[in-house]
Design a protein around this nucleic acid. Structure first.
Lengths: 187, 187
DNA sequence: GACGTAGTTTCTCTATAGCGAAAAGGGGGT
DNA sequence: ACCCCCTTTTCGCTATAGAGAAACTACGTC
């Protein structure tokens, strides 16, 4: 449940931190002074539309006001090897998803040795997406000339209708999960 | 500014995707049926307290409902900024997939304490599937009266149009990845 | 076709969010 | 002390969020 108290403190923190008065924030956010005062003191529960305007006035995303503090997490690395396919280059890929007619999804688990480049994959049909979740190590993801570095626990989504590649730039093995939704090319 | 229309669609998508009726969600979230209907149809703007209860009833963090979809080709979510929701019962779920309009995929990471039962989930719409990969510990997977025990590294696929549940029968914490493709029931 | 039944919408009423303005602190300066 | 700012809180009043129940809308079934 959301605590109105912490919400109020958060708003007030952001407002005073910016050196703004209730009056000034009221003008920027198009919310009345009295309402702002009530929200900060947790006297009233604003509607999302009003809270959204307040966030705009403060110049922060709405998420920032309602997000709960992120607890620290530790990615547990531990996985038994099963049926793996080793590729030239030293990396191994495990296909976890079974073959199901009519389902265009692949769930893969890939291990990249340190410094290994798994190469690039061609552009799939428009509408295809891929999700990547890095379990351990570091992954260098290249999507259409754009290069990203992901650490353990990071995830990424991208439209897979462009060339994309995977590599491990670090000195430790990299393990990541890949979910691919592949559309059929139009004919 | 927040668009009430997309908020309503998002709530409805999550509700129907879980096979819930307005009535059932009303009981889980302690929000009246009429209010839920109004929110989904963007007829009224809920207060954050009510929206927070709706999010709880859906089992998603409040952030999930108000996050603005990112139009970027590549969406990266760092480990520190992922949505974690703690449930009564002690288990914890992390939503790894970003909010992308039109894509009905949920990529989840779940941690179950020893002996914890995450409960059962309703039958989703026909055509929905789920993939499970156990990262560590032991997972007791129940699919339509059939009970399976999965160890670290094991994976399973099942059509999610039946009741299914997750529990940790072991004495160690269980961590598993779940990929869900939720079809939306035609209306 | 008539008749349930499950699900959603619409209706009515009350609690309260939200606004504008007035009142209550709170320092500084003369 | 007093007065004059600026800032925040309080005070009506109106609009609307929110609950509960009735009314509508598919559907299957006999």
């Amino acid at each position: 449940m959301l605590d109105l108290g912490v919400l109020g403190e958060r708003v007030q923190q952001l407002r005073t931190g910016r050196g703004l008065t209730l009056q000034e924030l009221a003008e920027r956010s198009s919310v009345s002074v009295s309402m702002l005062s009530s929200v900060e003191r947790a006297a009233k529960a604003p509607t999302i539309t009003v809270l959204s305007r307040i966030a705009d006035g403060l110049g922060v995303p709405l998420t920032r006001l309602v997000a709960e503090p992120s607890p620290d997490r530790v990615i547990v690395r531990r996985a038994a090897e099963q049926e793996v396919s080793d590729h030239p280059g030293g990396w191994r890929r495990t296909i976890l998803s079974p073959v199901v007619p009519g389902v265009n999804v692949e769930l893969l688990r890939t291990e990249l040795p340190p410094g290994c480049d798994a190469g690039s994959f061609p552009a799939y049909a428009p509408g295809s997406h891929e999700y990547v979740v890095v379990q351990s190590g570091t992954l260098a993801l290249t999507v259409d000339e754009q290069r990203l570095t992901l650490g353990a626990g990071d995830s990424a989504y991208f439209a897979a209708d462009v060339v994309h590649g995977f590599a491990n730039p670090g000195s430790e093995p990299c393990v990541y999960h890949l979910t691919a939704l592949i559309m059929r090319p139009r004919r």
